[in-house]
């Protein structure tokens, strides 16, 4: 009736790291084999990563993907112990877990292509915000749709993905806080400059970056009357709507950034409460 002494195999799936690169001080990129994610992910989505079995669950934007090679590219900033551990991993090593793709894809992916073609779209990327902006610009380019991109950084050395971005957008404008590269000033100055002095007429703005940047971008675009989408990355644990840690207030209603977002209408989301 009974069998004795069963023993166990582990054999869990691990995710191979194919390539790592330091993009600038504290910002790294990593190409990882993640077949299920790469098959179905779209721009705007993210994954949750654990570097090892004691690691916390880290939400990271999918910056690029190849369905053919079954890979995704992650770009992340070292901000604590867990991202530090991630940065120390090299190609040939593995990630313990990658769950995803999570979150809603960019609204662009669900918009009729002819409608998009007729629009003047502006992307504004601050710092690491380049990572979630790039796949959207690339996706538009793949569909023969042009757009303008403003990349803002503190200083020249912190400008990332410049060459890649230039290949997929119509016009690339760079601003640095200290004027060491591109225009000196903030991304908001650049937007006002383009609209007021260069007769640019934008129908849609997608602004992703530090909270303070998105807040001021939204104030600027509201003034200029440009509908604006922002992407939020609050603290989250599971990324599937279970923990509620990422709740945000949009139009007076509580929403979860992980499942209802990460992108929201920037003129409706309460950016002060995050």
């Amino acid at each position: 009736m009974l069998c004795m002494n069963f023993s166990f195999f582990e054999g869990e799936y691990m995710y191979d790291i194919l390539n790592t690169k330091k993009l600038c001080e504290n910002i790294y990129s990593m190409v990882v084999k993640a077949p299920r994610v790469s098959r179905h992910c779209l721009p705007g989505q993210f994954v949750i990563v654990r570097s090892d079995e004691n690691s916390e669950r880290i939400p990271l934007t999918i910056c690029d993907y190849s369905r053919e090679n079954e890979t995704i590219t992650l770009v992340f900033q070292v901000i604590g112990a867990s991202t530090m551990n991630l940065a120390m991993l090299k190609s040939g090593e593995t990630l313990h877990d990658i769950a995803g793709p999570l979150g809603k894809e960019s609204e662009l992916c669900n918009t009729d292509l002819d409608t998009l073609k007729a629009k003047n779209i502006l992307f504004v990327a601050g710092g690491l915000g380049v990572a979630p902006v790039y796949p959207q610009v690339k996706w538009l380019n793949d569909n023969d749709i042009g757009c303008d991109v403003i990349v803002g950084a503190k200083t020249k050395d912190l400008v990332i993905y410049e060459d890649e971005m230039r290949k997929v957008c119509t016009n690339l404008y760079i601003t640095t806080d200290d004027g060491s590269y591109g225009e000196k000033g903030l991304v908001t100055d650049m937007v006002e400059n383009l609209v007021n002095n260069h007769s640019k007429n934008y129908d849609l703005c997608i602004a992703i970056g530090p909270m303070i940047m998105m807040k001021f971008m939204c104030l600027t675009t509201k003034k200029l009357g440009i509908p604006t989408i922002v992407s939020l990355n609050p603290i989250m644990v599971d990324g599937t709507g279970m923990c509620g840690a990422c709740r945000v207030t949009v139009d007076g209603k509580v929403r979860f950034a992980c499942v209802d977002g990460p992108e929201f209408d920037g003129h409706k989301v309460d950016l002060t409460k995050l």
């Binding site: 669950r57 599971d238 709507g241 279970m242 923990c243 509620g244 840690a245």
Partner: peptide
């Protein structure tokens, strides 16, 4: 798995957790 909240004032403050989040941190993590 989706947590409910009361919808009262102050519920989005720092230090307010769903039981799901608090327990997931302690149990799973």
């Amino acid at each position: 798995g989706l947590p409910k909240f009361m919808g009262i004032k102050g519920e989005n403050a720092n230090g307010v957790f769903s039981a799901n989040e608090y327990l997931t941190r302690s149990n799973l993590m």
